[in-house]
């Protein structure tokens, strides 16, 4: 049997669309639907959308979970803390990643693939194990403290673990390639003649950088920053292993609500609010990527 070209095209596009609709988009609808239910002791542990009394259906809409979220300071502070951690980590990633991407883009054509490989290689090894490695470095009797004690720089071990600092280190460490790669892709395309022209017109190197290179690399900076910021807001593993026990990030709160408290509606509401916070950055990133594909 020969499929017509039209049917073929429909199948090619239709199968992945259908898959993602069922396993990516519809789940969000379900999350939203459960976030407006109430907890009950049953399986599943939430009230149905429609309840039946005397033969008539009643819509059961409970906004309690959201109300709870905005009145209990635990949630508000977790959201704010998550945003702060993500923002600070993104800036640190940029501060370290930009010069690295710049150095790779300006390296010789022979060494460039090697350097890129070195950047990407950790990404291929287990994320969990790389975060775990930092426990060994940051512990009270970990490598860093032992070296500093040995050198006599400090007398008492520094409390590095279970601090904001450890979380920043963990996020920067894990997400650095996501910052470097889009930056490199952008910087590598720059026409070096522009810098020469700027120098020829009398601009000093740093001024030429600020006037020519930096503005041109803005799309790379935005793409890298969004790729780090968005997942960092909901980060779960890094704060759980390295972070403070007294100030949870929102990803951990969600997980605890679900697994420990078995409060599905509140966990769902936490997810919906987080999604609402991230919708704008996600749409920005998609616009940026579409434009980049279009430019190719």
């Amino acid at each position: 049997m020969r499929l017509s070209a039209r049917t073929g095209r429909r199948l090619v596009a239709g199968i992945p669309i259908l898959w993602l609709l069922v396993l990516f988009l519809i789940p969000f609808v379900i999350v939203f639907r459960i976030s407006i239910a109430d907890v009950r002791l049953a399986i599943p542990p939430y009230t149905p959308l429609v309840s039946w009394h005397h033969g008539a259906g009643h819509l059961e809409l409970h906004w309690d979970a959201y109300q709870f979220l905005f009145t209990d300071p635990l949630y508000v502070s977790s959201y704010l803390y998550s945003l702060k951690v993500a923002a600070v980590s993104t800036l640190c990633c940029l501060a370290l990643g930009y010069p690295m991407a710049y150095a790779i883009a300006r390296a010789g054509p022979g060494t460039r693939p090697l350097l890129l490989m070195l950047i990407v290689l950790p990404f291929w090894t287990s994320f969990l194990l790389r975060v775990y490695a930092w426990i060994g470095l940051l512990n009270n009797n970990g490598v860093i403290n032992n070296v500093l004690l040995y050198l006599g720089v400090i007398r008492q071990p520094l409390a590095l673990m279970q601090t904001d600092f450890a979380v920043y280190i963990g996020i920067v460490y894990s997400y650095l390639p996501f910052m470097i790669l889009p930056l490199y892709a952008n910087l590598e395309k720059h026409d070096l003649a522009l810098l020469e022209a700027a120098a020829d017109l009398g601009a000093r190197p740093w001024r030429a950088f600020l006037a020519v290179t930096l503005p041109q690399s803005l799309p790379g900076i935005f793409a890298g920053a969004l790729l780090v910021f968005i997942p960092a807001v909901g980060e779960y593993v890094i704060p759980t292993l390295l972070g403070r026990p007294d100030q949870l990030m929102i990803g951990r709160v969600l997980s605890d609500e679900f697994f420990e408290n078995r409060d599905w509606p509140v966990a769902s509401a936490v997810a919906i609010v987080m999604l609402a916070l991230l919708v704008v950055p996600i749409l920005l990133l998609q616009r940026l990527e579409r434009r980049q594909l279009g430019a190719q």
């Binding site: 596009a13 992945p16 669309i17 993602l20 609709l21 069922v22 396993l23 990516f24 988009l25 519809i26 789940p27 969000f28 379900i30 999350v31 459960i34 969004l226 790729l227 968005i230 997942p231 807001v233 909901g234 980060e235 779960y236 990803g251 969600l254 997980s255 679900f258 599905w264 966990a267 769902s268 997810a271 987080m274 999604l275 991230l278 996600i282 990133l285 998609q286 990527e289 579409r290």
Partner: peptide, 28 residues
């Protein structure tokens, strides 16, 4: 038809915080 939808649904999971994806899939 559905091009924008497909484009959106293929880039979003990459950055979506994993707790959200995990929870939504479980509830599904």
């Amino acid at each position: 038809r559905g091009r924008l939808l497909l484009a959106g649904m293929t880039t979003a999971p990459i950055v979506m915080p994993e707790v959200i994806t995990g929870l939504s899939l479980l509830l599904l």
